[in-house]
Amino acid sequence: MPDPAYRAAPPGALRFEPLGEVTAIFDRRSVQTHLVVSPMPEILEAMGAGDCDAATLAARLAARFDLDGVADVGAILNERLGELAAMGLVERA
């Protein structure tokens, strides 16, 4: 089964406020506050406008971060994407 693809929130829907080691995200659509740590903000930022699956995301993140030595990046990102979807921050495409 191919990895599911996800869609990011439309531009302007999310407000990010870094608070030290955590990032507070306000979702204007749900009026909810989410407190997340790395790599969640980085994932959300790298999602872009189109549909995006774990492999695409891994490639984008690898261009910006040093992911060498991280075993099974795809599986980790899949799990994180599932969590972001449960929070409503991303949506299954």
Partner: peptide, 16 residues
């Protein structure tokens, strides 16, 4: 207005 937005979000989550 906040409560309305929350209610519509519940509808959106049901849709998802």
């Amino acid at each position: 207005a906040v409560a309305r937005q929350q209610a519509l979000w519940e509808a959106e989550m049901a849709r998802r």
